[in-house]
Write a protein that binds this DNA or RNA. Structure first.
Lengths: 199, 199
DNA sequence: CGGAAAAAAGCACGGGCGTTTAGAAAGAGG
DNA sequence: CCTCTTTCTAAACGCCCGTGCTTTTTTCCG
């Protein structure tokens, strides 16, 4: 009754790490079980199939992401500070996961983009929510007068997200030391362009 | 002597398509053989291992990329037109591969970023070359006076590449119809910021 | 056209996969 | 403490994987 839920959670926690390294498809139940010193069938019993394991991994990762990236940003003042905080928190999220495989959503995005099914659906929803979140923060910044009135907030969200993807690419694949600098500079330019007055 | 090289090439051609859908790891020799109506061992004989197949796929894809994206851009006038052409050609490259799995390099990038080995090494080199190519085009634009003198061309290349990744993400995962519009608008903003005179 | 060389096929291997089933160990509640 | 339920294990399944080995078919060239 309680022990079960506990290991269930522990499995997911470890699975997130492993999946961000080897991918949601690359993750094997046997391998995950070994890492946790659990029997393969014992682990499997917690999830009725690999697909639902993948979905649960994405859901657990989404919860973690909300907790670590989005929620802390909401404590920041409305407007540009909050927009900045979202960006910085994501950078931290990615950086902290560097010893592991980096942001699991980025890894899953290219892996699942041609693989229809529940896992893909879940991921799409998460990504849509994230973009909406970024757009909403920008919208508030417009309302607060921090951004120019006719800033296209969806475009802004898209551009910001592209920078995050670019950072992941530079940092993880190319191991480029300047990746973080580049990402931050590009984001500063984005902010500058969005502000009302021409300097 | 000649027939061999011919099928070898045909295999790689098809493998590029398949790999951009299912990934370099996800690609199975049996599956590829079936698509080509070839025996598994017959296909395998062309490559001594799956790893070297993956490397050859990346090399063939790089050659194709150079042919389709880079070379045509070199016929454009030096400076901003060529910079634009590189961006547009990449968009076309990605768009034409949409019925297939989209740009194979983007797919491979997140798949291999935690998988050391020859395939990863080859991909990293290709990506570095691509970024250098973008930076070089920007450098020429600076020399031609199309871009401001103190534009950081490496930063520019990074930003441009991030937009391409963002486009892939929006178009392939989210199936966002506005993806191309967003990418182009963002790139226009990038160009605008790089031009010498303040409007 | 015939024979050497190349290319492709057939077959089998060891192994890991996801999944099922049956049973042992552990936990919880009266 | 005993029993019922939950949690975990052990073993096995059918399948497909990458990879060798052997044989057949095809291609090339004198």
């Amino acid at each position: 009754m309680r022990k079960g839920e506990l290991t269930h959670q522990a499995i997911l926690e470890r699975a997130i790490q492993l999946a961000s390294r080897v991918g949601l498809q690359g993750l094997s139940i046997g391998g995950l079980a070994e890492e946790l010193q659990l029997s393969k069938s014992g682990l499997f019993a917690h999830f009725r199939s690999k697909t639902s394991l993948q979905v649960e991994i994405l859901e657990a990762a989404t919860a973690l992401f909300t907790e670590r990236v989005i929620r802390p940003a909401l404590t920041q003042p409305r407007g540009e500070p909050r927009v900045r905080a979202l960006f910085e928190n994501w950078l931290t999220w990615e950086r902290e996961l560097v010893p592991e495989g980096g942001c699991i959503f980025v890894a899953a995005a290219t892996e699942l983009d041609d693989a229809p099914g529940p896992a893909r659906d879940r991921l799409v929803q998460t990504q849509r929510d994230w973009l909406d979140c970024l757009a909403q923060a920008a919208r508030i910044a417009v309302a607060e007068g921090h951004f120019h009135k006719d800033v296209d907030v969806e475009q802004f969200a898209h551009d910001e997200n592209a920078l995050l993807l670019g950072f992941h690419h530079s940092a993880r694949l190319l191991k480029e030391p300047r990746a973080e600098t580049w990402a931050r500079r590009a984001f500063d330019a984005l902010l500058r362009a969005a502000r009302p007055q021409r300097s």
